[in-house]
């Protein structure tokens, strides 16, 4: 589903991603872990072109992406993104948060957009919050709405950028539960997270990044139980 070849990304002189290549297969859940500043969020943001990059190639769903406005919008229809800080639209109700993009981008009529949004809210357990504004929701509820909002576009791939890092500890579980359900349904997912439990339980593959490189990737059991590289061992000994 996603093929990344020799990706290089610089912010000014700082090289954040150094020659990254990796693939994500259909229905695969890839979990990206690593210390802060290792480039994992930047990598994720490159996949749906929220960041430009200096060289390399990204192929999504069989199409190499170029930086034209039209292609970028086309790509993003298929790639959902969930942010650390939710970024719900505060001036719209929960329901409107879910319906605006399908109505504006896919020209869905209001009734079918509402219908689909209602089903998605039911799925994340928030159908009773349909008509409230995001301000009145808890962090965990906000993130579940954000996931539902991305799903409303019926993406083929979902990207999660530290979806639980801004949450109070007691709310992490409800968000991870929704993500697990998505994984069970066969969604292709790339998840940047510090939740090692989630990586072990749900990840088909875990990628460890450090200093702009992919240091090591493996299935979760191998990577957590028998890390090959010193840097992976150091990192895991600190977080586990």
């Amino acid at each position: 589903m996603i093929k990344i070849r020799n990706l290089v990304k610089r912010f000014g002189k700082l090289e954040v991603l150094k020659d990254i290549s990796f693939n994500v297969n259909q229905k695969e859940v890839v979990v990206v872990i690593g210390p802060s500043g290792s480039g994992k969020s930047t990598l994720l943001r490159c996949i749906n072109l929220l960041e430009t990059f200096q060289s390399g190639e990204i192929e999504v769903d069989g199409k190499t992406v170029h930086f034209t406005e039209k292609e970028i919008n086309e790509l993003r229809k298929n790639v959902g993104m969930v942010f650390q800080h939710f970024h719900l639209f505060p001036h719209k109700t929960v329901l409107e948060n879910l319906t605006i993009a399908p109505m504006k981008v896919k020209n869905l009529d209001k009734n079918s957009a509402n219908e689909k949004a209602t089903a998605l809210l039911k799925k994340v357990g928030l159908e009773d919050k349909m008509y409230v504004y995001p301000d009145s929701l808890s962090g965990g509820q906000k993130q579940r709405v954000a996931i539902a909002r991305a799903l409303a576009m019926e993406p083929k791939i979902m990207l999660f950028d530290e979806p639980t890092s801004a949450l109070d500890p007691e709310m992490v579980g409800e968000v991870l539960e929704v993500m697990k359900q998505l994984a069970r349904e066969g969604m292709t997912m790339v998840v940047v997270t510090h939740e090692m439990g989630f990586a072990k339980e749900v990840g088909d593959r875990v990628v460890f990044m450090d200093g702009g490189y992919i240091v090591e990737e493996n299935n979760p059991k191998e990577l957590f139980d028998a890390p090959q590289h010193k840097r992976t061992q150091d990192f895991l000994s600190k977080v586990l």
Partner: peptide, 13 residues
């Protein structure tokens, strides 16, 4: 983040 969230949903600028 508001701009990014909306753009990531495929909305134009």
């Amino acid at each position: 983040g508001q701009m990014e969230a909306a753009r990531s949903l495929g909305m134009t600028k």
